[in-house]
């Protein structure tokens, strides 16, 4: 198994007719993902290299049995597209678009939760389940099928770690980019839970970076709810402390959001943290082989 996307994924892509949407949509199809539809209002009836285009996501659910939506439309229109997807009948929405205003994402986040639709992103590279399906922009050639689940805020850093795992002879059940925006549809905790319940995942690698307190919350969650080993990497130890604008941020999170604070929070709960992507990959491989 894998999580969120697999052989049964039937993908509809909002923004398929755009330049980037076409490029990545076709790459996803070439990988083996069932790309069943594209959506561009007013372009219903056309097709992109044989992929039928519909006027709405709901039409693609009825006509092409789409069950997963990918959002690849420009930032100004992306929240409206995500909202459309949430209402359309698909059960998963993966939003790649970068730069969506956070005040747009706030009601959208709550709408997805209310409707029970799984939202990944925005501002994320998507999800890859090696050997099964690729939804988004993750370069699949650097990953092999295997038993390590990866969840990450950062795209390129994920590729770095995935590639180190591959070179060490290990692969992945899935790779999930949750995105680094202040409000993302799914947090570390949501994805950790899915990996915990996935029989084909034996170990989880979690890649975090400075800002917010998602890693600290994940640390608490891991100690109580995750039985599988978790190895972490945090980027940003040498990042300069941002200009402080007031103190409200520090008060609410109770955490400074620094890489050091995150590392300490994770280690306090027994999660091993690699100093570099290379070391994190090494720890993951050693731990996996000792299981």
């Amino acid at each position: 198994m894998s999580i969120i996307i697999d052989d049964d994924t039937k993908l509809v892509i909002s923004g398929l007719t755009g330049r980037e949407g076409t490029f990545h949509g076709l790459r996803n199809r070439d990988y083996g993902t069932q790309v069943v539809a594209g959506v561009t209002p007013g372009k219903g009836g056309q097709d992109v290299e044989g992929i039928p285009v519909f006027d709405s996501i709901a039409d693609s659910v009825v006509e092409a049995n789409a069950n997963t939506s990918m959002i690849f439309v420009p930032a100004r229109f992306a929240a409206a597209s995500i909202n459309e997807a949430i209402e359309s009948g698909v059960d998963t929405v993966i939003a790649i678009t970068e730069g969506i205003p956070v005040m747009d994402m706030m009601p959208t986040y709550w709408k997805a939760r209310e409707k029970g639709v799984r939202l990944i992103g925005p501002n994320c590279p998507g999800i890859l389940s090696p050997g099964k399906a690729n939804v988004g922009i993750i370069p699949a050639q650097f990953f092999e099928p295997g038993r390590i689940g990866v969840v990450s805020k950062s795209g390129t850093l994920t590729y770095q770690i995935g590639n180190e795992l591959k070179q060490a002879g290990e692969g992945n059940s899935s790779i999930v980019g949750i995105g680094g925006d202040p409000i993302v549809g799914s947090d570390f905790i949501d994805i950790l839970t899915l990996y915990e319940n996935d029989p084909e995942t034996d170990l989880i690698v979690m890649v975090g970076e400075i800002g917010g307190d998602a890693e600290e919350r994940a640390a608490d969650f891991i100690s109580e709810n995750i039985s599988k080993p978790v190895v972490a990497y945090i980027a940003g130890f040498t990042a300069p402390p941002g200009k402080q604008m007031g103190h409200a941020g520090a008060i609410i999170s109770g955490s400074s959001g620094t890489a050091q604070a995150k590392k300490e929070a994770l280690e306090a709960k027994g999660v091993r943290v690699g100093k570099s992507p290379t070391e994190a990959a090494q720890i993951a491989v050693e731990t996996l082989r000792a299981l």
Partner: peptide, 22 residues
Amino acid sequence: LGNGAGLCMSTLDVVAQAGGSP
């Protein structure tokens, strides 16, 4: 110079770990 904010931050970290100053 790196590509992607995460990888770039990580690069600063490993340069510092190697005893350098970005």
